[in-house]
Amino acid sequence: MSEEQIRNLEKQFEEHIARDEKIEPKDWMPEKYRQTHIRQMSQHAHSEIVGMLPEGNWITRAPSLRRKVALLAKVQDEAGHGLYLYSATETLGITREEMYEQLHTGKAKYSSIFNYPTVTWADMGAIGWLVDGAAIINQVPLCSTSFGPYARAMVRVCKEESFHQRQGYEIMIKLANGTFEQKEMAQDALNRWWWPSLMMLGPTDAESVHTEQSMKWKLKRKSNDELRQQFIDQTVPQADLIGLTIPDPDLKWNEERGSYDFGDIDWNEFWQVVKGHGPMNKERMKARVGAWERGEWVRDAAMAHAEKKAERKEKEAV
């Protein structure tokens, strides 16, 4: 194809998207669109998969059967969300094995929030309430993103996600209304998860490199700072309601803006965690790669069994 032809196709492509028409896997697309989507979608999938680890840590120690079935269902949903997203990404021409390879070698990133430890039961509450809360704010706009398979996967993910946040907040309510020690535990979890949750919405707009292109392709509808403000404005009253204190001395309602002003985020910590120096980066990868390696004989056996069965069926048919 000549350069002019490509420019023409690109122009038509951008017009399609501007008209809110979807792009489907076999349609022509600029190479950059394909690569950007492979990167963002696979990292989203990886985040779901690694996201199971901090919570999986507490399934066997959930304080009641009610809490245990809920947590189990939530972690199972996360596996499901990872699988929807991996298969949607595969439609762009990358294999599942290549994506696992990228995750396991550290070439692909996942959400840095999962590199923090879950040290008490209250962390299950804080994760559901704050981390899933921030995730929902990030994900809802993606339900109308331009790439069809991604948008369809996100519609399903968003539908399932709202129970995750509610079950987390319910845990926090219960602890906040419990004994002194239980309330302390809830407050401690909020103290540890608040700032990483704010970081989860991404670098400030000034630092964010992909924003303009992502807006055009509808991978983003609002900037990171707008999303962060939305998250803060919606979460602060929820904390007030259950008598917990947001760990930010600079947090103050701004009458004029109709929003909360908040303190400085420690971006140095964020970049450290992204670069692999968070408290649990090594641990998470060890758990993930270990599970993959220990499962290898199972995958091989299932394949061998399937082939044998198919052979037998073929013989019987003769």
Binding site: S87, A153, M303, A310
Partner: peptide
């Protein structure tokens, strides 16, 4: 509804139940 990986058709059906019809 989507796609998934499985060793054979029976496993694909079971995985499809778990991945796409949890509710």
């Amino acid at each position: 509804f989507g796609s998934l990986h499985a060793a054979d058709a029976d496993m694909a059906l079971e995985n499809a139940r778990d991945v796409y019809t949890r509710r």
